[in-house]
Write a protein that binds this DNA or RNA. Structure first.
Length: 610
DNA sequence: TCCGTTACGTA
DNA sequence: CGTACGTAACGGAC
């Protein structure tokens, strides 16, 4: 058996590379004596595990503790895969970094049920987030294995691994994204890269465990359970309307070509190029002046949309068609498996505030909702109908409940219009009395203020983003804090805590770091983070009640489903009831909607609030 | 090939 | 003192 000797943080490590079946007894001995906690990982041909019946393969499986690991060439012979499968069964506890991916792999490659592994798994990506959930941009460690190693173990080791990818890619004349299926199984850097992974995840878990704040510890099983639920949704996938998708690609392509030709006639070859746009418009006698924060000239919709010139319309139409085509339809088609389903990747614990994100085949959380054009490409299962259940006014209700402000609470308990209330507090009731039919004439300012303040904004944000006059914005924001002193106290308390401790705890005890120069964000972090856990709790209840197999994706304050046609309405009502949650006596309601076959059909319901 | 910037979509 | 994301295209840096 080949042994690679190296170091982590200057400490000696050993990677045992299994080369023949004769090496397996030593592997089994190792697993037996490390069964209490075993780090593991897989190397594959790519991330598209759903193509297991096409060209996806698992190549290596690795198991280890803090200083020793074994690498199995599972791609070669069944005997190695059997050994890997046995090890997964023999371990009492497993730890992996982003282990949901490896559980997909174990399921499609070796038939190991995801649920079986989930029950005894830790995930160092999740524990890392519980310690400090900030990404690199937010001044934090960031959750990728390389970044976690760099931050918590050894900066040199982290960089070395990053560099080794580039070298491997070069060795096989490929890129860092394409070398995975072709790198030889015995490439020394590949074996080193693979072999250190289980050691790192093992070490990271122990480091994180010590650092997770006492109040946050309770979320460890919570996050692992949630990650399992979303992994099952990933595994199930969402049915794609292939015919419709292809039709849209053609349509958009035609539109794009048409508009590009118009733009080209004015000298704009690349409709996304600000330089070309500025130069072409200059020739037409139009000078753009508005600058971005970096001093470049702005050429977005905001600017071009206001100019009455055929070039501007063509540029906007061409880039919109192009972006829709590639972002939605082509990405989805590329990600389709042999059964016609796509498998977007759900990151169950992503943002600083813990909100989930979805990427991959399509970014479900950014799918346009102004029109049903894109949403029509996603279908419920045959004989099913699409269901969508969303929480109503979740964040403002949360603010009311957690702050305990009497007027905010009264508004929701008595079904009053909070936007009218804020408008009244700011601009008086001379022209409008509570309870009168219709709305306060300045309701828009009230609405903008409610949302903006809840999200940590001030009068300037109300002014610029809601189109409210400067004077009204100032008046409304001041009035908000006056009218709802409970919210003011809550914000102040959180800012104090953030200044003293560097962060805040959400309603579920989650630690969220707050930047010292942005203490005002603390209120939003509390509300956003706590609301995310209400959605998470809803998913637990749904799973527990047997609704798991019908769930498709979580979309912030919404969950989408594929329900059997005959019981769809009833199931949606029951699911909504399960999701509803009461915070300090205030209900966060969940509204069920059932469409026809496609996601888009829900949007077209007459009574849809969307 | 990588990465910062800008733009635009969502809650 | 708006917050949190993902994706695409461009264009300079390497």
């Amino acid at each position: 058996m080949r042994v690679i000797r190296d170091q982590i943080k200057g400490q000696p490590i050993q990677i045992h590379v299994v080369e023949t079946p004769d090496d397996l007894p030593a592997f089994r001995d190792f697993v037996e004596s490390n069964r209490r906690l075993l780090g593991w990982d897989t190397e594959t041909t790519g991330l598209d595990w759903w193509n297991w019946d096409r060209d996806f393969r698992v190549r290596l499986a690795q198991f280890g503790n803090a200083s020793e690991s074994f690498v199995l060439p599972v791609e070669l012979e069944g005997v190695y895969a059997s050994a890997a499968k046995w090890a997964l069964g023999a371990a009492e506890r497993l730890v992996a970094h982003n282990g949901t991916f490896d559980r997909h792999v174990a399921k499609v490659s070796w038939g190991v049920p995801m649920e079986y592994l989930a029950r005894k798994s830790w995930d160092s990506k999740l524990t890392g987030h519980l310690v400090d959930g900030r990404g690199v941009k937010g001044g934090g460690p960031s959750m990728s294995l390389e970044d976690q190693v760099t931050h918590w173990i050894d900066a040199e080791d982290g960089k070395r691994i990053k560099g080794s990818k580039a070298i491997m890619a070069k060795d096989v004349k490929a890129t860092t994204k394409t070398f995975w299926p072709i790198i030889p199984l015995d490439h020394p850097l590949y074996l080193l890269y693979a072999g250190v992974d289980p050691m790192w995840t093992y070490r990271l878990l122990l480091i994180h465990w010590r650092k997770i704040k006492a109040r946050t510890k309770g979320l460890i099983p919570w996050e692992h359970q949630l990650a399992h639920i979303t992994a099952e949704m990933e595994h199930r996938g969402v049915l794609l309307d292939e015919e419709y998708t292809k039709k849209c690609i053609d349509e958009l392509h035609t539109e794009e070509e048409k508009q590009k030709a118009i733009a080209a006639a004015y000298g704009v070859e690349k409709v996304g190029s600000s330089n070309q746009i500025v130069a072409a418009l200059e020739k037409e006698g139009i000078t753009l002046t508005e600058k971005t924060s970096k001093g470049n000239i702005k050429t977005g919709e905001e600017i071009l949309g206001k100019i009455d010139h055929p070039l501007c319309g063509a540029i906007l139409k061409a880039s919109k068609a192009s972006k829709q085509r590639s972002t939605w339809f082509e990405n989805a088609l590329k990600g389709m498996d042999s059964t016609g389903r796509i498998h977007p990747s759900v990151n169950s614990l992503e943002a600083r505030t813990s909100r989930m994100s979805i990427n991959g085949s399509f970014a479900a959380q950014t799918i346009p909702k102004g029109s049903s054009y894109v949403r029509h490409m996603l279908l419920a299962e045959p004989g099913h109908r699409w269901g969508a259940i969303d929480y109503g006014n979740m964040e403002l209700r949360g603010l009311a409940a957690w702050s305990g402000d009497p007027r905010l609470l009264k508004a929701f308990h008595e079904n009053l219009d909070l936007h009218d209330m804020t408008a009244e507090a700011a601009f008086g009731s001379d022209v409008w009395k509570m309870g009168d039919p219709g709305h306060h004439p300045k309701r828009a300012a009230g609405k903008g203020t409610n949302y903006t303040v809840c999200f940590g904004g001030g009068w300037n944000a109300v002014h610029t983003q809601w189109g409210i006059s400067e004077e009204d914005s100032k008046k409304a924001v001041n009035a908000f804090w006056e009218a709802y002193p409970g919210a003011k106290r809550m914000s102040r308390r959180l800012m104090d805590q953030a200044r003293r401790q560097g962060g805040i705890y959400t309603a579920t005890g989650r630690w969220v770091p707050v930047d010292p120069d942005r203490p005002y964000a603390a209120l939003n972090y509390y509300v956003q983070g706590s609301c995310r856990d209400i959605t998470a709790y809803g998913l637990f209840k749904l799973q527990e009640a047997g609704y798991g197999e019908f769930m498709r994706l979580p979309v912030h304050d919404e969950v989408v489903f594929s329900f059997p046609e005959n019981e769809a309405e009833e199931m949606a009502r029951e699911a909504a009831r399960l999701m509803e949650f009461t915070v300090n006596g205030l209900l966060i309601p969940a509204d069920p909607e059932v469409g026809l076959r496609s996601w888009g059909s829900v949007l077209e319901l007459e009574d849809s609030k969307h």
